[in-house]
Design a protein around this nucleic acid. Sequence first.
DNA 1: TTTCCGATTGGCT
DNA 2: GCCAATCGGAAAC
Length: 194
Amino acid sequence: MKNLDLNIIHTSFFERSTEKVARDLIDKYLVTERSGKLCGGKVVETEAYLGQEDKASHAYVGITSRNKVMYGKPGCAYVYFIYGMYYCFNVVSEKEGVPGAVLIRAIEPEIGVEEMKIRRGKSKLRELAAGPAKLTQALKIDMSDNGTSLLSKSICFMDNGKKQRPFSCSSRIGISKSNHREYRFFVRNNKFVS
DNA sequence: TTTCCGATTGGCT
DNA sequence: GCCAATCGGAAAC
């Protein structure tokens, strides 16, 4: 592994508007530690999901047992099960009581690459974490992480202090209910974007 | 309790 | 490009 000077990102970063958090998470590190194995890389693609004004958000219908984490403390994980077989990972944004979360759609594999290859059953770097459900498989994130704080060593975002690469925005992927705003952010010309 | 369908993926045409 | 896999959440009945 290369020399990395990484610092855990704290709650105040997440206690802001969902759009800003989504934008600023680009190029931050997402790292998990599972059974002593460290895996992660730079975030290269995110999407913002807001509250009841956002038709595509789980919070559009109001608080339910599934989405209640979105209304909780910023900087916690919101994980949900989808299509009967996949998990998607979000970080909760906004101050407590206000729903919002940022879906992490892709990371650029950098730490623990060999372990992620085993978990994914794939050898190409491009196939390890270019997609929200691929990323949870590579980082071993599942429902047991739902609601947990992302300030711990076992799962967290980290900053290496370097400047963000240029990124673009677009409409979100895979949603049927449209929203005018462009809430997807991704590093420009990066092959690890989904 | 029944029905509809989803913030996806991988395999096949 | 198309579509099945697979199951829980949410709303309808």
